[in-house]
């Protein structure tokens, strides 16, 4: 009888992590940043119909980086979970925190039990009633969950973009125009490319809207916003 190969658990986890990280780093980045009226999400996305940012519930937005089929399934499962919870309890009981927990459980289980880990990184944003009450969660491929303040980045060279943002951010909460230019500048600086208007996917969770706060900002509007800033 042939002796089975022995691979130490450490080695196996490390291999899986490396594999997942590689997949995620191949993609492009998505930045979320709090601004005075809510939360802004900017994605570097050349496709105008395959969205990376989308709405989960009244005040919650979702974004995924990495393998499209994987984060798309997670997105749909999240919408189902949120709608079901809103129906069972009430709309205000659907929170990004509980969703983030659910995602963390799923990704954690898949990472440790399946042969191939999910090559995804997720971002959940929830806009609060007041500027200080927004929530940003980042969930990585192994299910680890990070509760972020002010801004966060997933996908591509996320860590480098984060560093740039940390340097450029000021203590005051930026306006929408300021936040948008900061995000775009940070992405451009790291990728060393200028972002074409067509490659920008921009959406906001706008606190002033009643009911569903999520809104995509169309290209024309992004153009005017950017024109104001210069």
């Amino acid at each position: 009888m042939a002796l089975p190969f022995y691979v130490s658990p450490e080695q196996m986890m490390q291999d899986k992590a490396e594999y997942a990280k590689k997949g995620i780093a191949k993609g492009r980045s998505i930045v979320a940043m709090e601004y005075d009226g809510g939360v802004l999400l900017v994605a570097d996305n050349p496709s105008s119909s395959l969205y990376k940012i989308s709405e989960i519930y009244d005040n919650i937005a979702f974004s995924g980086a990495g393998k499209y089929s994987e984060f798309e399934n997670l997105r749909k499962a999240g919408i189902q979970h949120a709608d079901l919870k809103g129906l069972m309890y009430s709309r205000e009981d659907v929170t990004a925190r509980s969703l983030a927990n659910g995602y963390s459980q799923i990704l954690g289980t898949i990472f440790s039990q399946e042969l191939k880990p999910f090559e995804v990184e997720l971002l959940l944003a929830q806009v609060g009633a007041e500027p200080g009450q927004n929530e940003l969660f980042r969930i990585s491929f192994d299910g680890s969950i990070f509760d972020e303040r002010r801004f966060t980045v997933i996908g591509g060279r996320a860590e480098t973009i984060l560093q740039v943002l940390r340097k450029t951010s000021t203590s005051h909460i930026p306006s929408l125009v300021e936040a948008l230019t900061q995000c775009i500048k940070a992405i451009e600086q790291v990728t060393e490319q200028t972002m074409a208007l067509e490659a920008m996917e921009v959406a906001v969770l706008d606190r002033s809207r009643s009911g569903r706060k999520f809104r995509r900002i169309p290209q024309a509007e992004v153009k005017t916003l950017l024109a104001v800033s210069t």
Binding site: N73, A77, H81, G102, I110
Partner: peptide, 17 residues
């Protein structure tokens, strides 16, 4: 909670409707 398919009640591999 430990079973992801229970938490997100649809199997992730199937096409979601």
């Amino acid at each position: 909670m430990n079973d992801p398919r229970k938490f997100f009640p649809l199997s992730l591999s199937s096409a979601l409707c």
